[in-house]
Write a protein that binds this DNA or RNA. Structure first.
Length: 271
DNA sequence: ACCCAGGGTAACT
DNA sequence: AGTTACCATGGG
């Protein structure tokens, strides 16, 4: 990876197969948008980033400290995805999926934002999920010059489900409040989920009303970077029924979640 | 009017 | 233990 400092940005070459647009817009994160110039923009935590990719170059409009201290890890730029995809290619369908949409990285999102986002995702579609999350941030996040932050669990914990009416989240409002309360009072312990094997996280997260197996797996994969987490939504279920009636291939051991992300995007985009 | 969406709960057999 | 209606909302 070659990193050059520009006057207002960091320019990167030789960053492997990473695809910025695919990674931020393949259904794992919901706050990235394209501005008039096609640059990808989002608020993550209390930071803001504008970024673009063109002609083999990746440009982050931020300084070196921010890139090295946060974004490099957020985009998982130091993991060798080419090697992972090569390993997955031992399976015919995974070979096709990884070849069809190369460059997807798992984004290392904030655990609370991932949990809350995937609670909202249940029995919902991606455009509407984005809308609800936008309204959640506008109503309860902190306003900065560049946009609204994602509201903390502590901020939402003091609210009642009816207070979330402006979100038009439907039956999910009460689940969001229950999650906020159990996370902020440590009844659901994020530090232990980070430290312990995935089985602990599975049980811990499902103590929350409205969190079942699928939302828990998404939270563990995108919020805790547990790459063996395996979320099965309606699209992945179709793939499992059509292509893997006898189970998921061994070559995906420990990275089932990454394999799942390629299959999800492949199935939605090309079938 | 009907069906579906990155599901989960509760109430049934 | 395995099915099924129902849950709010909006787009096709």
């Amino acid at each position: 990876m070659i990193i050059k400092k520009l006057h207002n940005a960091i320019e990167i070459e030789d960053f492997g197969s990473f695809d910025l647009g695919l990674s931020v817009d393949c259904g794992q994160a919901f706050r990235w948008t394209q501005n008039e110039t096609g640059h990808w923009c989002a608020v993550v935590g209390n930071r803001y980033l504008e970024a673009e990719q063109s002609e083999g170059k990746l440009i982050f409009y931020t300084d070196e400290n921010e890139f090295e201290g946060f974004w490099r890890n957020y985009f998982d730029l130091d993991t060798d995805y080419a090697a992972i995809c090569e390993k997955l290619s031992a399976d015919t369908h995974l070979k096709a999926a990884t070849a069809a949409c190369p460059g997807i990285h798992i984004l290392k999102q904030e655990p609370w934002e991932a949990l809350c986002s995937f609670i909202i995702s249940q029995n919902n579609n991606i455009p509407r999920i984005k809308g609800i999350i936008d309204r959640l941030c506008e109503n309860f996040g902190e306003k900065a010059e560049y946009g609204y932050s994602f509201p903390s669990a502590e901020r939402l914990a003091v609210l009642e489900p009816e207070d979330l009416a402006p979100l038009r989240a439907g039956f999910r409002a009460k689940y969001i409040i229950d999650a906020a309360r159990k996370v902020s009072n440590k009844e659901v312990d994020f530090e232990r989920i980070k430290a312990e094997p995935i089985e602990f996280g599975r049980e811990e997260l499902q103590k929350i009303k409205g969190v079942g197996a699928k939302v828990a797996e998404c939270t563990l994969l995108y919020g805790f970077y547990k790459t063996e987490a395996f979320p099965v939504d309606v699209w992945v279920r179709r793939i499992m029924e059509e292509m893997y009636p006898d189970g998921f291939p061994e070559c995906a051991d420990k990275v089932q979640g990454i394999a799942q992300q390629y299959l999800f995007h492949w199935r939605r985009t090309f079938f």
